[in-house]
């Protein structure tokens, strides 16, 4: 997984970047609740300059899903 994404997730979820692994999803992280989900999405938009539609904001709840979205949208 790219360091850039790792750092964004770690910053919002208040964990160390090493704790973010490639197949992680919201259920695996204690603090990754619905509020954090929105904050993760806003942080990704700022970092990658993408616009995430409302439905995707709810669905992108794992590292693989986020990576796929970013690749599809030509970011990162």
């Amino acid at each position: 997984m790219r360091d850039r994404l790792r750092n964004v997730l770690a910053g919002v979820l208040e964990v160390r970047p090493e704790e973010i692994c490639a197949d992680m999803s919201a259920e695996d992280v204690a603090g990754w609740d619905s509020l954090r989900q929105l904050e993760v999405m806003l942080a990704l938009e700022l970092e990658y300059g993408v616009r995430i539609p409302a439905d995707a904001m709810l669905e992108l709840q794992s590292v693989p899903a986020i990576e796929e979205f970013l690749t599809e949208h030509g970011a990162g």
Binding site: L38, L42, I52, M57, L58
Partner: peptide, 15 residues
């Protein structure tokens, strides 16, 4: 404001 934050989280103010 951010309309998405309103619909998804009932937030009237963005960061």
């Amino acid at each position: 404001r951010d309309e998405r934050l309103w619909y998804l989280g009932r937030m009237r103010l963005n960061p």
